[in-house]
Amino acid sequence: AEEIWQQSVIGDYLARFKNDRVKALKAMEMTWNNMEKKEKLMWIKKAAED
């Protein structure tokens, strides 16, 4: 689920960090860890469908 979420937001994060992939990935990891369980559930369901 986290991978699907990352694939959907990586472009936004890379743009925000001027294509600094290391910073973008760290920010994504922090965002994922801070997400509410119900927000993650949507992505977990999406992962299950694929």
Rank of each mutant, 00 (worst) to 15 (best):
E49M: 14
L41F: 08
N33T: 10
V9I: 05
Q7G: 05
K40E: 02
L41D: 15
A24K: 00
I4R: 08
N33A: 12
K37M: 15
W43H: 03
D12Q: 06
K23R: 13
I44P: 02
D20I: 03
L41T: 05
W43P: 02
A1N: 03
Q6Y: 10
W5Y: 04
L25H: 05
A27D: 04
L14A: 02
M28D: 00
M30V: 13
K26N: 08
F17S: 04
A27R: 03
A1D: 04
K38P: 09
V22F: 09
L25I: 13
E3V: 13
Q7P: 01
M30C: 09
I44Y: 13
N34T: 11
A24L: 03
N33M: 11
K37A: 15
D20N: 08
A24E: 00
M28V: 02
F17N: 05
L25S: 05
E2Q: 11
A47W: 12
E49K: 09
E29Q: 13
E36M: 03
I44Q: 09
A27C: 09
K37Y: 15
V22N: 07
D50R: 05
L25M: 14
W43Q: 03
R21G: 09
A24Q: 01
S8E: 06
Q7W: 11
M30A: 12
S8G: 06
E36I: 04
E36T: 13
D50H: 13
Q6G: 10
V22L: 13
T31I: 09
R16E: 08
D12I: 11
A1G: 11
W32S: 00
K45F: 07
E36A: 08
G11Q: 14
F17C: 05
K26P: 01
K45I: 10
R16S: 08
G11C: 11
R21L: 13
W5K: 00
W43F: 03
M30W: 14
V9D: 01
K46P: 04
M30E: 10
S8T: 10
Y13T: 01
W5G: 00
Q7V: 11
K38E: 15
S8A: 11
E49Q: 05
F17R: 00
R16A: 12
E3I: 13
K46Q: 05
L14D: 02
A24P: 00
A24C: 04
E36C: 09
M28P: 00
E39F: 03
M42R: 08
E49H: 08
M35C: 01
L41V: 07
F17T: 04
M42V: 14
R16P: 01
K40F: 03
K37Q: 14
A27M: 10
K45Y: 12
N33W: 09
K45Q: 15
I10A: 05
Y13S: 01
E36V: 03
G11L: 11
N33S: 07
K46I: 10
K26Y: 09
F17P: 00
R16H: 05
I4V: 08
E2R: 05
S8D: 04
K40A: 03
